[in-house]
Simulated assay, not measured.
Amino acid sequence: MLKSFDIYSQNNILKIIVALNVLLVGTGSLLYTNRLINKLEDREEQYVQLYARSIAYLVSSTHTNSGDITFVTDQILRANTTIPAIYVDPDGQIANYRNLDAPKEYTPEQVEQFLRQKIVEMKKRHNPLVVDIGNGERGLVYYTNSRLLRQLTYFPYALLTILTALGVLAYLAFSSSRRAEQNRVWVGLAKETAHQLGTPMSSLMAWVEYMRSDPAQYDQSITDEIEKDVQRLETITARFSSIGSIPTLKDENITDVVQQFVDYLSKRISTKVRMSVTSHLPPGQTIKVNKLLFEWVIENICKNAVDAMKGVGELRLTMVPLPHQEVAIDITDTGKGISKKNMQKVFTPGYSTKQRGWGLGLTLAKRIVEEYHNGRLFVKSSEAGKGTTFRIVLHAD
């Protein structure tokens, strides 16, 4: 059984390092900040307890002549400039509050309502502190975290968000750089291949001319076929030379282009594969294409279809008009089909289900259609055991 492989699927060390750094920094910051928050929260609670005791002393001092105590407790009460707190006396009345600013236009009744609402919110955050003012009477101090502590609470999450965003940007930048590097490699490889083919092709053409010069010794039908294959090599060389350059698009009769190429290809694939072309396009329908590159697209898809059918089956090419001045070319085989999870993966560089090959055929086909012809190439449908349909969509204007 053949196994799929992807020459680009191995994890990159740099990606792992970036991800680990983001994770370690984020986790360390979260733990350290939580530790600071807990310490600051304990400190604020202790301060509020001091605030509560000061109120108790202040209330009790009103029954004595302890002026010094009143001065000290009053200074402690005023020293709280950060922690929102409300003191409710034993009668349930709001007797004192700190660090809560009601709108200036509020009436006393609206201020009272404002503070009562704050008490409800504070009770959800912290249990009130009991103020024992003597004679069995007790008041309550409600409080919540200071603004600084609240900001510090949200800080680790903001930091994690920033680190995550930076990690994503780093990943995208690295992926873009890798794709650019891959493109440069492919372009260089394609042009070098075209260059290397030049010498043997020149030699083959010379041999063809030599064989034509002596028709009595060499069967000219064989010579004709060799010449066709040499011309085919010239076409392949021209295709490779076009990679990385902006191709020239010309108005071509798309039906004729497809039909002529299928006629050529059908003689060079398995005789057990039946190929057919059906066109529902208006006669003479033209589309701007680069003929050499577009034939390469058809060839790559058809050869993949033949492999999927293991050289036995039916291959149908159907051309239909679409709305918005578009034309669709459907290439349908009767092969083994493609699973849903692999429908997008088939266009990934290096993906292949064959023991031989680099898995670049469909990748190049998609690039030619979408980048050079401003069209679309995708898997229209596929069913296990019944076959697959690839669709090419081109603009007719």
Rank of each mutant, 00 (worst) to 15 (best):
K288C: 04
T286S: 11
E252H: 03
I254W: 06
S276D: 14
I298Q: 00
P321L: 06
A328E: 14
E252R: 02
I301Q: 04
Q344K: 07
S270Q: 04
E370M: 04
K250L: 06
F294Q: 03
T363C: 04
V277M: 05
K272Q: 15
P247D: 15
D333V: 10
P323Y: 02
I243G: 04
W358C: 08
V297E: 01
E295Y: 03
G313S: 11
S339C: 07
G337V: 04
I338S: 00
I246M: 02
K340T: 07
I329V: 12
D251C: 05
S276W: 11
V289P: 06
L322D: 05
V289L: 10
E252L: 04
W296K: 09
Q285S: 06
G361E: 07
E370D: 05
L364M: 15
V306P: 05
T334L: 10
G313V: 14
V320I: 15
Y372R: 02
V257I: 13
H373Y: 06
E314W: 12
M309H: 06
T353G: 02
I254C: 03
K366R: 12
G350M: 08
N253D: 15
E299D: 03
V257T: 14
T271Q: 13
G335I: 01
V262A: 13
R239F: 12
D307I: 11
L293S: 03
K250D: 15
P323V: 08
S245C: 01
S241M: 09
G244Y: 02
N300C: 10
Q355S: 09
V369T: 10
T318K: 07
T278L: 10
N253C: 00
T318C: 10
K345M: 10
I246D: 13
A305Q: 01
D263K: 09
G357S: 08
H280R: 14
E252P: 00
T332V: 15
I287W: 06
R367A: 14
Q355P: 01
K336F: 11
T318H: 10
E326W: 07
G313T: 12
P349A: 13
D251P: 08
Q260L: 05
E326P: 12
L315C: 08
K354V: 05
A308K: 10
K336A: 14
V312H: 09
G337S: 02
Q260N: 14
G313R: 09
L317D: 02
L317Y: 15
L281D: 10
E371T: 13
N253F: 07
T348A: 01
V306C: 15
T278M: 08
L265A: 12
D256Q: 04
N290C: 07
H373A: 04
E326Y: 11
F347Q: 00
N290G: 04
K345S: 14
L317T: 07
V369R: 03
K310I: 14
L292D: 15
C302Q: 02
A365S: 13
M309L: 07
F347L: 00
R316N: 12
G357A: 11
K345T: 00
S242G: 06
V369K: 10
L281S: 08
D307C: 02
T318Y: 08
I254T: 03
T286I: 05
L265Y: 13
K345Q: 00
A365H: 01
V273Y: 05
Y372P: 03
W296L: 03
N300G: 01
P321A: 14
K272R: 12
G350N: 05
I331Y: 03
Q260W: 01
Y372M: 11
G359C: 01
T286G: 10
I236L: 08
G284D: 14
V297P: 01
P283T: 01
